[in-house]
Nucleic acid binder design. Structure first.
Length: 282
DNA sequence: CTGAGCGCC
DNA sequence: GGCGCTCAG
């Protein structure tokens, strides 16, 4: 609900960036890395002594990594037409060498034969402006063991819908995460992969804040801002209609212990986080 | 039916 | 690089 930034009357992404990532990319060629503009859900920091909530920052997205689960806690990114172009899907799944020395690194092959997909958090198709941007989405720190029908159907459709919203003139702030242990893929139920080094999450959630493009950052979140929150089972027999899993941000906070959208004024959070989206789904 | 997007081997 | 699946147009 609240915490550090509640005293700001309006959204101040640049101020937040100054705190978490530095703020001087106004005229960089790449879009500014404002992936945490709405807050840091778990207070992650780039501190090797916090291996279960380790902040990993990249130009294309930002995430909290859990060393002992071998997967991210959550991944956050910004989506608008600035990120969309014609770069081909790179398919270069690979270990993330940027993890601290000595930490386990999931390999491209670590999920093979498990019955779970290497499911993207930040999707490949959300990062097609440059080859480098697309390639970055294939780092294994951006992946989770995801039931194929969850990934390729329910989740794929939701991701496609997000891009549709971006292409018609919206900017989206997206946070995806996972919690719990144990899922059912195409090869049965599993708790872990790779000899216990990768945890199969039980639930996979996403919170999408839809903002109109072009208006001033400072006043864009208001009581009519659309927020889509979903929480799905990591089970291959799920309902493939993602809309059937719509829920509230409050419910996801209760399940995860995170503080989502903490950069939004508290009163606004109260209004928005208790609402279940009822908008169109395609 | 084709193309896009998610994957697998 | 080929193949399968689902979905939208």
């Amino acid at each position: 609900m609240m915490i550090a930034f509640s005293r700001f009357r309006f959204l101040l992404p640049c101020v937040l960036l100054a705190v978490v990532a530095g703020c001087e990319s106004e005229d960089a060629a790449e879009p500014a890395p404002d992936h945490l503009a709405l807050g840091n859900p778990s207070g992650a920091t780039a501190d090797v002594n916090q291996p279960t909530n380790y902040l990993l920052t990249k130009p294309q997205y930002i995430l909290s990594y859990h060393r002992d689960r071998g997967i991210p806690n959550w991944v956050s990114w910004h989506l608008s037409t600035e990120w969309l172009g014609s770069a081909a899907r790179q398919d270069d799944f690979r270990a993330d060498a940027s993890l601290p020395t000595g930490w386990y690194q999931a390999q491209s092959s670590s999920y093979t034969g498990s019955g779970f997909d290497r499911g993207h958090n930040c999707p490949s198709a959300d990062r097609t402006k440059t080859v480098a941007d697309n390639s970055a989405t294939f780092l294994m720190t951006n992946m989770i063991p995801q039931a194929p029908n969850n990934n390729q159907q329910a989740w794929g459709d939701l991701e496609e819908y997000c891009r549709t919203l971006a292409k018609v003139g919206n900017e989206l702030y997206i946070i995806m995460g996972q919690y719990g242990t144990g899922g059912t893929g195409s090869n049965g139920t599993k708790s872990t992969l790779d000899n216990g080094r990768i945890t199969v999450p039980k639930r996979i959630w996403k919170v999408i804040v839809v903002l109109p493009e072009g208006s001033d950052d400072a006043s864009r979140v208001n009581s009519s801002t659309r927020i889509i929150a979903v929480d799905t089972p990591n089970n291959n027999s799920l309902n493939t209609d993602w809309a059937s899993y719509r829920t509230t941000v409050d419910a996801i906070e209760a399940a995860t212990g995170y503080d989502l959208l903490s950069a939004v004024p508290v009163a606004m959070q109260r209004t928005l986080e208790s609402r279940v989206d009822a908008g169109p789904t395609q």
